[in-house]
Amino acid sequence: MKRPVKLALILCTTVWCLAIFLAPLFDLAPVYLFFSRVCHQLPARSWHLYGHQLGLCIRCTSLSLGFLGGLLLLRVPNVRWLKISIAITALEWLLAFTVMDSETLRVLSGLLLGATAAPVIRTGVEELFIRVRTAHESM
């Protein structure tokens, strides 16, 4: 049961990440509308491709890519590193508002948070599917 869930998560995340980059390349208006529900899409905080901004801002793009990397490379959830990456992201966000707005720090914190969250969320989704399937079979 766990393997199909992991594969489905990897597939959905890959499609999500591809959509971020395909949106400006092929002028995909529905993708921009879709991503507008989760991201501010401010031009000053987004990378651009061929003159048009990506579907998500720099932080959200880094989070998404980090999440995909975490799904592919990390097997065991590490909650200590997840807490550290949440703290780093919060600190970086505060720094950006007060002292120093660094694109490099935004990318690094996004990649780290996405990667450390991936195995935790994968485990939760796998357990949820097992739970739903078990409940369905017991009916």
Partner: peptide
């Protein structure tokens, strides 16, 4: 209009 979105995306957003 200030956002650097492709014209079709702007048109779809404006429709909503």
């Amino acid at each position: 209009q200030q956002a650097n979105l492709p014209p079709q995306a702007m048109e779809m957003l404006n429709r909503f």
